[in-house]
Design a protein around this nucleic acid. Structure first.
Lengths: 114, 114
DNA sequence: TCCTTATATGCGAATTTCTGCATATATTAG
DNA sequence: CTAATATATGCAGAAATTCGCATATAAGGA
């Protein structure tokens, strides 16, 4: 069952595996955006952003549409936001328990009155 | 809001961005497994599998537990399976539309009777 | 203690990815 | 047609990943 989907899934994750591309997707939660807006919001060089958009496009994560001089991008599958949310939840949980552990350590050190 | 979570999310995705690691996680749907079982099922060298497990461990995606000579692995956050399922769904959908498009082309060619 | 089994880690070469810069393409204005 | 704007692509060097192989560690048995 779906034996060769592994590589496809890995490729998909690879496309998501860069801070800039995650930021681009988070921006797209608000709907269509043109490259010029990414440049402003992300404060990166235009060629750099275009390259990252190309990666997302190649994996069919985003699709583009021309409107005059501008090119508007949007996510192709809204489920991607659920993926981002799930991972965000896992990470938040992880951070919370790490902080709790640190607090625990802190308490121990204090009670020992080093 | 959560401005510095981007890099963490990217790191997380990077840990998932390899066919072998995806396969490992799919195996873990069935519960705890020891390294020796991965070796059998994935047909890869032991050091290779250990390296991939180390990547997943570093990102807290899996946790390990010793039992005698063996080390048993399991996923730490079951939500990871929802992530895999969502991506699987997106990809299946993508493949389906691609195939439909190919069929459409096929039809056109045939009707033109090249 | 010594050996065996199970797993982890270190290292080097090949491959891939990233970034910055230069440049190409495309659309609209003049 | 020419210039200007918006975006995409090509390329080179630096950095990160991957795999195979050798080796280290750790637990259990003789």
């Amino acid at each position: 069952m779906a034996e060769r989907l592994y590589s496809l899934k890995a490729e998909f994750f690879k496309a998501l595996a860069h801070p800039t591309r995650v930021r681009i997707l988070e921006q797209l939660r608000q709907g269509e955006k043109c490259v010029c807006e990414f440049i402003e919001d992300l404060e990166l060089e235009q060629p750099n952003i275009s390259q990252h958009l190309a990666v997302l496009r190649k994996e069919d994560i985003v699709v583009s549409r021309k409107e005059g001089l501008k090119v508007l991008y949007r996510v192709k599958h809204p489920e991607i936001f659920q993926v981002l949310d799930l991972v965000g939840g896992i990470l938040t949980q992880e951070i919370a328990t790490t902080m709790a552990e640190l607090q625990g350590l802190q308490g121990k050190v204090e009670s020992k009155g080093s």
